[in-house]
Design a protein around this nucleic acid. Sequence first.
RNA 1: UCCCCGAUAGCUCAAUGGUAGAGCGGACGGCUGUUAACCGUUAGGUUCGAGGUUCGAGUCCUCGUCGGGGAGCCA
Length: 433
Amino acid sequence: MPALPKAYIENIANFVDQEVTLQGWLYNKRSSGKIQFLLVRDGSGMIQCVVSRADVSSDAWQAGEALTQESSLEVSGRVRADKRAPGGYELTATDLKVVQIAEEYPITPKEHGVDFLMNNRHLWLRSRRQHAALRVRAEIIHALQEFYDSNGFVRVDTPILTPAACEGTTTLFETDYFGEPAYLSQSGQLYNEATMMAFGRVYCYGPTFRAEKSKTRRHLMEFWMIEPEIAYADLDECMRWEEESVAYVVRRVLQTRAAELEVLERDTSRLQKVAVPFPRISYDEALEILKKAGEEIPWGEDFGGGHETIISEDFEKPVFIHGYPTKAKAFYMQPDPQRPEVTLSVDLIAPEGYGEIIGGGQRIHDLNLLEQRLEEYNLPREPYEWYLDLRRYGSVPHSGYGQGIERTVAWICGLEHVRETIPFPRLLYRMYP
RNA sequence: UCCCCGAUAGCUCAAUGGUAGAGCGGACGGCUGUUAACCGUUAGGUUCGAGGUUCGAGUCCUCGUCGGGGAGCCA
C-alpha cells in the first residue's frame, strides 16, 4: 500500500481531491458484480467508499468481497464531494487491505431487543446512535469542566472510598478496607465543603454509587456527578451558577455536536430555547401547579418522577423549584430564616419529562444548628467531627449542588433511558458486560 | 420490596389446542450508483425450566428462572 497521508473521517472535508488512507471498520456493505459500496467507520465518523472492479487490483477487489460486517480494514482512495452521499463526501477506492475478517456479527442492521443489546453492550457501542450519544456525553463533560475552569473554580476531587454515609439516608455499597468497613461514595459534597474552605470555589467530578433497588429509566447504581461548591454564595447565587452552566453546555452541544443530535433525531428547537434566566418557582407554587393538574399531594411530601414531569410541562426551559420542606431534605440544608419549616434548597427540573438533573442549595454554616440537625436525624456524631470543624474555623455561608451527568445527557440527546448515556451502565441485576 | 407485561431459529417476530414459519444475519450464486440495496438457492429449532390438564400443548393451568416497564428512593 502506498504511503499516503492518514486521514480521519471527521476531517475528510480537508482532503477533497486528495488521495488518503483510512483505517477503520466495515459498518455495512452493498455490492453488485462490478461495484462495491463499503460503509466504513473509523470512530470519528462514517463514509461510503466506492470500489469499482475496473479501478482496483484483483487483490483489493477480493478483499472487498471477503469483508463481513465489522471487519477491520485499511482503505485508500481519492476523496470526492458527492451530493448523493449522506455525509457529503465519498472515497473512490484505489486500494483495500483487510486487517481482520470479523466473525458473524451479532448486531445486524435490523431491529433488536433491549436485553440482547445490553448483553452485547461492548459491541452496541459501535452502532450509530450509541456512538452519537456518547460523543455528546463527552462534549457535555468537556463543556462543564471548561465552564467551571474558566470561571475561577478549581477542580478538587473527593474520595470514592469513604468511612461513613454522606447523608445517612440512602443505602451504600459496602466493601472491605483491610478489615474495616468502607463505603463507595454517594456524593462528594461533604468533602467539597472542606476543599471549598481552602480554594473558595471548587468542583469535583467523579462516579457515585447508590445501592438503591431502583428500576426506572432515570436510575443507575453507578453514575457520574459534577459537584460545585461555592463559598459566600447564597441560594440566589447558587441558582445563577446552575443556569449559567446548563445554558452554556446546551449552547455548546448545539454548536459542536449538531451532526450527532441529528443522528439521534433530537428536536433541537426545544434546546434552542434554553437561555438564562430559567424560571424559578417555590415548592408551594409547584404544589399549586400539581393541584391544577389534578395531582394533589399533602404539603411536606417530596415529588415523584411523574410530578416533576407535570411541572416541567408548564415551562419551555429547565425550571428551578426552591424552598422544599425541611423534613424532605438532607440534614445539612440551611433553613429559610423567614420560614424555618422550609430550606434554602433547590432542584433543577429538565424540560420534556427528564426529571431532576441538579439538586442543591445553601448549606448550614452555624455550628450549633448543624449539631442539632445531626441529633434530629439520628446521625452518629463521631464520623462528622471533621465536618463540624468546618463550622468551627472560619465558617461562612455557602452553597453547592450536584449535577447528574447521565440525566443531563439523556435530556440533551432526547433519549428514553439513562442506560444509553453511559458506556457500561450498572443497572439493577445487570452488571455484564 | 410491590404492581403490570413478556420469553419460539444467531436477531426481530408469526403460528384457531391438530405437520413449527417469515424477514434480517450466515453460506453459495447473480447484478456498474447502492442508501436497513435488490433477486435466486440453501443451512439453521430441547418453542426458558419443572410439573399438570388433554387422544393431542409453542398455545391451557401451577410453580420457578430470566428479562422489560413502572412505583417507592433519588441525580
